[in-house]
């Protein structure tokens, strides 16, 4: 996999500028994303998350500021946008709704084919991607519409993985799945990062899922409200609550217990919290 770095430099985007429908998409975003790292983007519907994702993939071009892939401006005249599309893979919400081919394998080949790979290379890439997402070979020639919901979702993700991106961006990849389906997707993302050194950028509404990321980015009304390690960001309980956002369960518990007079350090997940509590208990 290629190691890449995507930088958003002071990027702004406005929808329908100059009309009565003018709305802010993103304002002055300074962000940087790298392979091998994981990022969680949180914020309400309408906070600018989907604008941000589309800017990262070149589907929108910024009104102000630059998007740089390994130092190159992706909206410069000579730049081939397909280079960005293949480096930064974007998986939309409910990606299974974009499936269209007669067979699973053909659908996954669509991306690499568009990038100009030979049919043999496409097939190789597609097989590798399907293997990664855990779709077995006997399903390759099946009609994707006959698969289960969770399988369809994974085939759609494979469709983007087959383009061999260095960073994978996903908009709520677990939305609407049952707990098992959700776990499968989350563990897939973990594998991609650990074994394939892929950068993972995930929009999530679930703070417990977001807390696993190296960096958490909180958006509000198009601006970056908070940014930092999960520990740093989720410490700002009041600030997040003001934005109508939550913190992970263990941190909520920690706060509640402190307010009941129990002296606890900042606990981030159930394991930390139970250890701290048991320490107090045994004292």
């Amino acid at each position: 996999m290629k190691t890449i770095k995507l930088v958003l430099e002071n990027v702004s985007y406005v929808y329908n500028p100059g009309t009565i429908y003018e709305t802010v998409g993103i304002t002055d975003a300074d962000l940087s994303f790298e392979s091998e790292k994981s990022y969680a983007v949180i914020g309400h519907t309408g906070s600018g998350k989907s604008t941000l994702l589309q800017l990262m993939n070149g589907l929108l071009s910024p009104a102000k500021g630059r998007v740089l892939l390994d130092g190159e401006d992706v909206h410069a005249k000579k730049y081939k946008i397909k280079k960005l599309r293949s480096s930064v893979g974007l998986v939309f919400q409910y990606p299974e709704y974009q499936l269209f081919e007669e067979t699973v394998i053909k659908d996954v080949c669509f991306g690499p084919k568009n990038l100009g790979y030979t049919p043999e290379e496409c097939l190789e890439l597609a097989k590798e991607a399907l293997r990664l997402v855990g779709i077995e070979e006997d399903k390759f020639d099946q009609n994707p519409f006959n698969l289960s919901g969770g399988q369809k979702r994974r085939v759609a993700i494979a469709g983007v993985l087959a383009m061999n991106p260095g960073i994978l961006v996903l908009d709520e990849p677990a939305a609407g799945l049952d707990p098992e389906g959700k776990e499968q997707i989350l563990s897939l993302l973990k594998t991609l990062r650990e074994t394939k050194k892929m950068g993972i950028v995930m929009v999530s509404h679930n703070m417990d899922d977001a807390s696993g990321a190296d960096e958490v980015i909180v958006l509000d009304k198009g601006s970056i409200a908070l940014k930092g390690s999960a520990r740093e960001v989720f410490k700002e309980y009041e600030r997040l609550a003001g934005l109508g956002l939550d913190v992970p369960f263990a941190m909520r518990m920690t706060r509640l217990l402190r307010s009941r007079g129990i002296d606890l350090p900042d606990c981030f997940d159930n394991e930390e919290l139970s250890k701290a509590l048991l320490k107090i208990y045994k004292r």
């Binding site: 589309q54 589907l59 893979g89 939309f92 974009q98 269209f100 669509f110």
Partner: peptide
């Protein structure tokens, strides 16, 4: 859907008429 397919490298604006019509399938 257009955006999702564009993210997969599809191009709905290039090529001759025949190619464009075929390109609409996704």
């Amino acid at each position: 859907i257009i955006k999702a397919q564009e993210a997969r490298g599809a191009d709905f604006t290039q090529g001759n008429l025949m190619k464009r019509v075929k390109g609409m399938i996704p």
